[in-house]
Design a protein around this nucleic acid. Structure first.
Lengths: 163, 163
DNA sequence: CTAAATCAATACTTTTTTGTATGGATTTAA
DNA sequence: TTAAATCCATACAAAAAAGTATTGATTTAG
């Protein structure tokens, strides 16, 4: 399980915006400076976030980027989806991304691997859809408490699917 | 969060071996046939698994691959580690794989993203170290039951490690 | 009106991952 | 002893991801 550069850097920049005061903006050069990235690279994934409707932009002098919604209303899942990627565990069509030589995965029925990824992705989905950009600004122990709640709820969900 | 081709295909082939009767072997062409992959490609990651000590090999006519240990004693974590990858969430040095322009990540202290990945990777670690190749052969409901136990235990671990 | 600061879009280069090809070494069987 | 079947190792090619460069459009300040 790998984290892509876009996921990591894109999330970082989103969190940076989440820390702004209302009506403040940050320009690409400012974000790049804070995160130790190139301006061009920052512009690249900010564009993804913009197209997904997660950030608003203002061009020209004094322009920049800001979150389009309150940080507490933007889940990490939304951020990751905005940033793309081809073989994400959470994708519905995940299996056929690994079809080998044929058009579709050879394990059309009775696949033993699929349930494994399914369970793992279910957890990741649950976790990333409940964690918000706001959570990333809160103290770590709050995150742990929240994580515990998510995990318990997730166990419940799994049980229901089982019966 | 992406799954690499080596992880996916390598795991599949390992599971295929796990399903063999004792003293049976499968050759690379046989595995390739079953999984719909090229013989060369299969050989490639079987070599990784061999070097990690997870499979034994016999050369020559009637040779092939078999698991080096009982399937119940090989965790998915071991399999994934054998197959490599560069930006795995579970890696200790994960952060510095995303250092941007500098040698080390700019967020040396007070990073808000790190705890997030840490928690997620803790779960993945717990899950993949307890799930074995044998589990992949068992019915899905068994897996779910096992998953629940792992999750509960993991919540406990998180509480201890992170507070 | 003009210049500077900014986002927007896309093309390009480099690096990594994915997947194939090739030549060799080992074993078995005839 | 030779041929076929197999693993072993590495080199190569193609595709994707990561990261840079360039050109253009928009806004604001002076």
């Amino acid at each position: 399980m790998n984290v892509s550069a876009l996921e990591e850097y894109g999330l970082r920049c989103a969190v940076t915006l989440a820390a702004l005061k209302p009506d403040e903006m940050l320009s690409a050069p400012e974000i790049a400076e804070r995160e130790g990235l190139s301006v061009e690279y920052v512009s690249k994934f900010m564009l993804h976030l913009k197209k997904a409707g997660l950030v608003t932009t203002v061009r020209g002098v004094n322009g920049g980027f800001a979150l389009a919604k309150p940080a507490a209303e933007i889940s990490l899942k939304e951020v990751f989806e905005a940033l793309g990627g081809k073989r994400r565990v959470s994708d519905e069509d995940f299996c056929n991304a690994f079809a080998g030589k044929s058009d579709n995965c050879v394990h059309q029925s009775g696949c033993s691997i699929r349930p494994f990824w399914k369970i793992l992705s279910l957890y990741i989905e649950a976790f990333t859809s409940e964690m918000t950009l706001q959570d990333m600004l809160n103290p770590e122990r709050d995150t742990i408490v929240k994580t515990e709640k998510i995990a318990l709820k997730n166990i419940q969900t799994m049980k229901e699917q089982l019966s």
